[in-house]
Every structure is written in C-alpha cells, then in structure tokens.
Nucleic acid binder design. Sequence first.
RNA 1: UGCCUGAUGGUGUAACUGGCAACACGUCUGAUUCUGAAUCAGAAGAGUCCAGGUUCGAACCCUGGUCGGGCAACCA
Length: 572
Amino acid sequence: MKNNEKKIEEELNSNESRSLNFIETIIEEDIKNNKHGGRIHTRFPPEPNGYLHIGHAKSICLNFGLAEKYNGKCNLRFDDTNPTKEEEEYVNSIIEDVKWLGFDWEDRLFYASDYFDQIYEWAVKLISEGKAYVDDQPSDVISEQRRTPTRPGIESPFRNRSIEENMDLFEKMKKGEFPDGYRVLRAKIDMSSPNMHMRDPVIYRILHATHHRTGDKWCIYPMYDFTHGQSDYLEGITHSICTLEFEIHRPLYDWFLDNLIETEYRPRQYEFARLNLSYTVMSKRKLLELVEEGYVNSWDDPRMPTISGMRRRGYTPESIRNFADRVGVAKRDNVIDVGLLEFSVREHLNKITPRIFAVLNPLKIIITNYPEDQVEELELEVNPEDTSMGTRKVPFSREIYIEQDDFMQDPPKKFFRLGPGREVRLKGAYIIKCEDYKKDENGNVVELYCTYDPETKSGSGSQRKVKGTLHWVSVAHAIDAEVRLYDRLFIKEEPDVVDKEGENFKSNINTDSLKIITGKIEPGVLGVKAFDKFQFQRLGYFCVDPDSTNEKLVFNRTVTLRDSWAKVSKKK
RNA sequence: UGCCUGAUGGUGUAACUGGCAACACGUCUGAUUCUGAAUCAGAAGAGUCCAGGUUCGAACCCUGGUCGGGCAACCA
C-alpha cells in the first residue's frame, strides 16, 4: 500500500514532460544564471491567528514542494507581529497541520518575533538617515491625509521633525511612555505615490499587549510590511512566494531592503493566485463566523475546509497534496470545482481502504428457505484493488438487512436491484429472489421475503449471473453505529454571490449539510480507532470520528462513491 | 475615473518564447464487473476577450479597446 501511494505521487511529480508553472520557470532560470549560487530557499509564513485551510495547503505544498523539487529548503515562519490577534493555540494547530500534510522544516521553525531586536535597529537606522519619522496624529487623520488612490496625499505636519526629536520620541515609544495609538513611526517615502502603500506607511505602532513569545518585552510592534522582507532577508530566502493581494506591496518590500541592506543578496517576492473552491468560503473571517454563530460545530467540523476539518472528515495528506498539484499555480483568479478535490480523495482512498458492509437505511429480508439457526462465515476480499490486504469473514444468516433504495415495488427495466420476482446477488453470498413483501399501514415496505439458490454460493464456481449485486448485513450480527452524512456547506457554487440586497454568504448555507443516522455494520468493525478509514461498499468512504467509543461507534462520511445510477434515475 | 494585475473548452492548468491548441477533472458512448465503484477503449467540447497591425505563419510580438481582480487597516 505504501508503494501505491508513492507511485501516485511519483507519477504526478516526476513526469518528465510535465510543464512548469511560472514560478518553476523563474526558478529554473535563476538556477541557470547561478543567482544565489543556485540555492533555493522558500518559506511558509502563516500568521498564528486562525486555523489553516485548504487554501493554505496549496501554499504549503507550493513552498515545500518547490524546495523538495529543487533540492532547497523551506522554513516554517510565524508572522507574529500583532500580539492582539495571535495566540499559541494557533501556532500549535498550524504546526500539527503542516506536519500532517507531510512536510518537514527540520530545525527551521522561526518566528518574526525572533527578529524584533534587529527590526528595531533597522527602524532606528531609517530615522537616523532621515527616512522615518514619528507622527503624533491619530489614525483617522493619517488615513485622511493619505486621501484616495486617485488623488495625491497630504504630508503630515510632523513629517519634517528633526532626526534628534524623532530618535527621542521613538525611544520614548519603546519605553512605554505613551498609550496605545498615541504615536506611530512612519517611513518617509512619497505621499503622492499612486501606490497607497508608499504614502509614508506606518512601520511601528504602540501596542501595550502581551506577545505570545516575547511577553511584555515590547510595547511597540513592527507592521507586516516592515517585517516580512527583512525576515526573508535574515533567513536567506531566495523566493518569497505569496498571494496576489501582496503584489502592490512589492515596491515597499523592495524599498525597505534597498534602504536597509548593503549586501547584494536580495530575496524577491513572487505572487500567485490564491485557491478558491466552489461551494466553499475560504476567508478566515467567514470561517470564524461559521464557527462562532454555530453553523458548524467547531474549526475541525468535517464540513469545514480547514485542514483539521478535512483530516477529521477522512481526507488523507496524499489526496490533498495530489489535489494541490492538479490545481496548478498561476496568476489569474480561479474557482476550482470541489469535484476535483473529491476525485483526489476517492482516488487515494480507493487504493488504501478496507471494504466493509454497512447498511444505512435498513430494509429487512427474510430468506425463507434458509435454515433458521444456520450461520455461515463467508470470506470476502478486504480490498479488490490490493489483494495483499487479504480477506475477512462476514457472517451470513436467514435474516439480513439491505438498503431501502435497493428495492422497488414497481421498478423500471434498467433497475438492476430487487423488485417483486427479481433476482440479485448478495455480494459474497448467494443469489436471492424476491418472492413477496410486506407493507405497513402507510404503504411503506417493511419486510421482504426471498428465497436463495444454494447452488450459487460465491466462490463455488456457479455460472449463474445476475445483473445486480447488493451489500448486506446479517441482522443478528449487525453492529449499530452513528453515521454522520455530510453534504456541501453551501447551496451555491459561489456562496458570496447573493440574490437579494442585504444578503450575504450565510444566506446560501445548506441547511441540510449534516444528517445523522444509525447504520447497521458488519461485526468486523469492532475495535476500530479514530481516523480509521473504510469503504462502505457501494456507498462511499467513511472514517471513524474521534467522538467514537467502544460502546458507540461514530463514522463520518468522507465522500460518496461516484454514482452513475443516481444520474440516470434523476434524468427520468 | 489613479496605480498594480489578469483574460486559452463547463472547470483548472499547458503550449519548447512565432510553426496547424495539449493534459487533468467533468460530460457522453461502449467494454468489463460478485461494488451501477474501480478499470479499459473511445467521443463530444475552445480556435485562445474584441478590433486592427507586423509576419509565409500569432494564444504568444505591436497598437487601441472591453471585461475581471486587487490597492485608500496603527491587519497579515
């Protein structure tokens, strides 16, 4: 099974003819020109203020994948410059998620806060060169003076303070002599720049907050723009890859480096389009709303596109990595069909999961000509895709459950399942024929009476063929389990597109995204552990939820099997 | 109506930088099947946002448009 996994990945990765994405093209060009001595060093720089989602997974796979491919390195760096939003809880979950995805940063786990001393020195350097100043104005005034992108901004009255005064004030900011927001340090760049980020950006602000790593050492904190490029520089990053919305920050990224650094070496920022998934929202803010307002149960609710949610849902790291490979990397906005994600999970799960019988909507069958107290232990394959996984024993007896959907009182010709007088094979057992059935007072079918053909036992060499094969579970041996059936969280491909004024993405929530039922499962399931994965035959892939106990099994449906019958029957 | 940026089948990504548009998902046939799964074989589907231009030849180059995304946090 390990070999299978390897093979899928190899096929995707080392296919010689596979074309390069634009970043790989740049990298290969850089290597050819011996830029950075041919060295490749990337980084994944999350802010520890939330849980990672599938969009981050794309970035993680990109950054770590590039390093792997080009014999380089990739750092994990927490961009923790805002103590009011960041927490250790998130650091831990991010570390767990990146590891789970299968990536290794070795000893290169960094925090931007590791560099606060150096960054402070750099701020002082800018001040001493007249390239930064302390502004006493409140944020709304500063913002107003920046004006709009179409009109040049106005210079702050404090812009031309003396270097000495700036030094003194910045020192006092650092010492904690002012309350939050009282003053800021700004880079002196260009208030009339068409790029708003160049209009004297704030680079340090006063925040009397305890930082998750530096504690109370600081009460001034550098802004993202004044931290990221320098951190890249300090870590020897060659290719600093981020999403498109930072494109407009690049001139600033370069400005700081050019004004701070004497050496020739420069990291360079490249931007790619973030991942969007159909029927999904991806922003941290929106995901947070779903959690806080109870639309889902938690950050790792299996309906969430978070890494932890997907893990709990039963996705494998391999399937996510393969998905990330397939979506590609480019600069244009995109919406990936969730179907592609589902394809990637099925592809992997098909190869690795044990098959098992589970009946989710039971309909009882009595096999009238089968001996009352006879039980046969039938031998079935664990995984037809991988015979090395061996066989399992499944008990068969006179009373069994089948799926309600597998019987129709008045079936159409193309229905290859059970109906009055029709025959099917019970997988791994016998061919049975439906002789009669019983209805309750509401007209619902509650019991089937069938006969079996003892000559047709599986493996006996019987030549009789029937079109349909059903899964089943022996009534006397069935184990009850809670089964959580998940569906997409939104009813619209693009949840942000709303019909009426005043609506938002939450108007498009699928109110039926979770159905909890009790299923009947073959006794072989006893003893399963959290995150164990199975294919419930003919139904889909399921995974043991951490809520599961020995007394009460709980399964999550990861994804259904492809169902071409559903398509056919829907058309009619 | 400023600046940055993008536009290729239904979706996503390619096209050796000028040589008759490919791959994956999806869709549709058919074969096979003790999972209506998987597998296998095949098909349909874009002429590359528009209009000009350069060229023997343009998705790739030039000019001008159109449409989409981003940017005005003491967030990242």
